[in-house]
Structures are given as structure tokens and as C-alpha cells.
């Protein structure tokens, strides 16, 4: 029963993909949309193969992936302990919450000029943009996840003789693990958005730069190739995170994938 359900969901997802590609084929091969606006699927695939052959595909992907990872990891390293502390200490929370809420509403794009002024056009500027884009959201998400742990479990642990530290280590941390994995999965997605912002402003490699440069030469096929690559990397990241969540918290039942 369960397998059948999964098969139909997979099939539906596949059908949606196929429909979009079909529409793309119809619009481009029939010539009803000019090739300058919409390249044919063959042109895009050929472009990707060509880039893979001359090595620029790997170089650009690698640049972008390493920027996302470094900027995002920085944000994770700071946000995890800070969010946990906020969930645990009303005083600390009162101290940092207002500034985090304020910063959260600043569009990162509006901070680009300042980062350029302070940090120049080097790698640090890109990490900073990604950090700023994800950090403030992640802190609040971590805080929410950690403070959302079922009160019953915490009370049970306390009446079983667990100290405050033991409650944290043995109950709150394992209980929030699946939620934290979800938070990480969501923010790494946003990190990709901010990476492209950073690379479009000042960079000489990476997928964002590749897309921006192609615009100048009206190389729509390269733009499409870049977009497809970013989407694919996103899908793979999401998939990896889902598998990781299942590995670190096999006991976890997601409400959405019920029976």
C-alpha cells in the first residue's frame, strides 16, 4: 500500500517535469519564440556538454559550491549555539532578539554596497553576503526549534533525576535534531540565492557570474545552462539533507509523509 503511494507521488513529480520540458520543446522547436529569448533544449544540452569538456562547468560549479558552503557554514557555526542559548536564557534572548529581528528585515541586496566598501571584491565579501542572508533567519529558526521541544518529555526527564545539563544533552538536543536538520536544509537553499546575488555584483567566476556575462553576449543558452545547473545542485542538496535526516534521526516521523 505504502509503496504504491510513493510510486504515484514520484510519477506525478515526473509528469510535471516532463510537461514543462514538453512546453519548452514546443515553444522553441516550432520557432514561435525567437532563439534569442528561448534556446532549444538541444542547444542548452550541447552548451552544458561543451562547458563540461572545456572544464569551465566544473570550475564555475566548484567556485559557487565552495562559496556557499563556506558562507553558510560560518552562519551555522554562529547561529546554532546562539539560537540554543536564546531558547534557554530569557535574558540573552531579550538582549539579542531586537537587533536580530531588525537585521532580519534588511534586504541583503541593500547591504551589498557596504560589503563592497568594507571588504572589496574578494572572497570574503561573498561569504559575508551569504552569512548576512542566512544567519539572522537561522538563529530564530534554531531558537524556535529548540524551544518547541515537548514539555512532557522535559518534565519526564526531570522527574527521572536528570540535571539541567543532562536534560539539555539527553533530551532537548536529540529531540530537536530533526527540526534543526530542516532548518539547515532551508537555509542552505537561501544561501544559493544570496550566492548568485554576490556573484552578479562582483566576481570573475562562478555560476552567477557566468549567467551575468552571458547576458552581455545574448548567450541565452548559457543562461539556461546556468539556471538548470543551479536548480540541479539545489535538488541534490535537498536530497542529501533528507537522507542525512533519516540517518541521524531514524525515529522521526514527519507528519506529511504519514501512512
Amino acid at each position: 500500500m505504502k509503496n504504491k503511494r510513493i510510486d504515484t507521488t514520484r510519477l506525478l513529480s515526473l509528469i510535471c517535469f516532463c510537461l514543462i520540458i514538453l512546453l519548452w520543446c514546443l515553444a522553441s522547436y516550432s520557432g514561435s519564440v525567437s532563439e534569442i529569448f528561448l534556446p532549444t533544449p538541444t542547444a542548452v544540452v550541447e552548451k552544458i556538454i561543451a562547458m563540461a569538456k572545456d572544464g569551465s562547468l566544473w570550475a564555475n560549479c566548484w567556485e559557487s559550491i565552495s562559496r556557499v558552503m563556506i558562507g553558510w557554514l560560518w552562519s551555522v557555526v554562529v547561529a546554532l549555539p546562539m539560537g540554543m542559548l536564546m531558547a534557554n536564557s530569557k535574558k540573552f534572548s531579550a538582549f539579542v532578539q531586537p537587533i536580530i529581528e531588525f537585521a532580519r528585515y534588511l534586504p541583503v541586496v541593500a547591504l551589498v554596497p557596504l560589503t563592497l566598501l568594507y571588504l572589496g571584491i574578494g572572497e570574503n565579501q561573498k561569504y559575508t553576503i551569504i552569512f548576512l542572508g542566512t544567519f539572522f533567519q537561522l538563529v530564530l529558526m534554531v531558537c524556535d526549534t529548540v524551544s518547541g521541544v515537548d514539555r512532557n518529555m522535559i518534565n519526564a526527564a526531570r522527574t527521572l533525576g536528570a540535571s539541567k545539563f543532562q536534560v539539555y544533552k539527553e533530551v532537548i538536543l536529540p529531540a530537536s535534531l530533526p527540526g534543526l536538520m530542516d532548518d539547515l536544509r532551508l537555509t542552505i537553499g537561501w544561501a544559493w540565492t544570496y550566492l548568485v546575488v554576490a556573484e552578479m555584483v562582483a566576481a570573475n567566476n562562478g555560476l552567477g557570474y557566468m549567467i551575468l556575462k552571458s547576458q552581455r553576449y545574448l548567450a541565452t543558452d548559457t543562461i539556461f545552462a546556468g539556471l538548470i545547473l543551479i536548480g540541479l545542485i539545489g535538488l541534490i542538496t535537498d536530497w542529501v539533507f533528507r537522507i542525512l535526516t533519516r540517518l541521524v534521526a531514524p525515529w522521526y516521523e514527519r507528519l506529511a509523509d504519514g501512512k
Partner: peptide, 18 residues
Amino acid sequence: GPGADRGMVFQGYSLFPW
């Protein structure tokens, strides 16, 4: 404060699911 000398069973399920 709570302690192991007074064990408690709750109405809601309070087992550690992991």
C-alpha cells in the same frame, strides 16, 4: 524541585521517541 525520589507517570505520552 524535581528529583528521582518522586517518579512520575504523565497523562500524555512522554517517552523519548529516539
